[in-house]
């Protein structure tokens, strides 16, 4: 465990909390992609199946439960909460998530560390997490005006990925047999997807303006 890894996990949790807080406080989920949230829940559920037998640390177990619980709450708000679900932008959130799920599943079957059910589900979750933000980015692109909290949510998620890369570099330098190229490549793709968004987010922040994405 190193400072980059802990920072990454906390940033990840913060991003989810920012989103929950926004939905709870404003009773609105405008600008939030339900598709992305459902994909994240699928990522957590398929990756954290080992919750029942892998007691690596209390730290890991607590985070796993919290990630699954908080992302389930977001989905519950968006689909079931009487006020919030009316604000869901379903006409713009039309990304077909099978286009992401099927290729990730096929890739996980072909490229994995070990051919076992749980290893393949874990690998699938790694691939799926890399692209799960796409419906959210497409929705932001379509609606152009991004409210502050949604912008902060995506920014924190990107920051979380960047810190994971620092964690890998640190571990590679300090742990003799540390290597995880499936995770590294997926992580690089995932972080890369945020770069464009980061550029506009930081520009808006520098000029203390509302974040607007170009057409």
């Amino acid at each position: 465990m190193n400072i980059f890894r802990v920072s990454a996990d906390i940033l990840h949790l913060l991003s989810i909390l920012v989103l929950l807080l926004k939905i709870h406080a404003t009773k609105s989920c405008a600008g939030i992609s339900l598709k992305t949230q459902e994909l994240y829940l699928a990522v957590f559920v398929t990756r954290y199946l080992d919750l029942f037998w892998n007691f690596h640390s209390l730290y890991n177990s607590v985070f796993k439960v919290v990630y699954i619980a908080t992302s389930s709450m977001i989905i519950w708000y968006m689909k079931r909460h009487r006020g919030v679900k009316q604000t869901y932008d379903k006409d713009h959130d039309t990304f077909r998530y099978l286009f992401l799920i099927v290729p990730c599943a096929v890739l996980a079957l072909i490229v994995n560390g070990r051919f076992s059910l749980f290893e393949i589900l874990w690998t699938f979750s790694i691939y799926l997490e890399a692209v799960a933000i796409l419906p959210q980015l497409v929705l932001l692109q379509r609606t152009k005006n991004v409210d502050n909290l949604t912008g902060n949510y995506v920014f924190l998620l990107g920051l979380y990925r960047a810190f994971y890369i620092l964690n890998w570099i640190y571990r590679y330098a300090t742990e003799p047999h540390y290597s995880a190229w499936i995770v590294w490549l997926s992580g690089l793709v995932q972080t890369g997807l945020y770069l464009d968004f980061f550029y506009y987010y930081l520009q808006a922040w520098k000029q203390s303006k509302k974040l607007q994405l170009p057409s």
């Binding site: 990756r47 070990r114 964690n167």
Partner: peptide
């Protein structure tokens, strides 16, 4: 890869 290796990251 060793059999039964656990994933220690989240």
């Amino acid at each position: 890869e060793e059999d039964g290796e656990e994933h220690d990251e989240l």
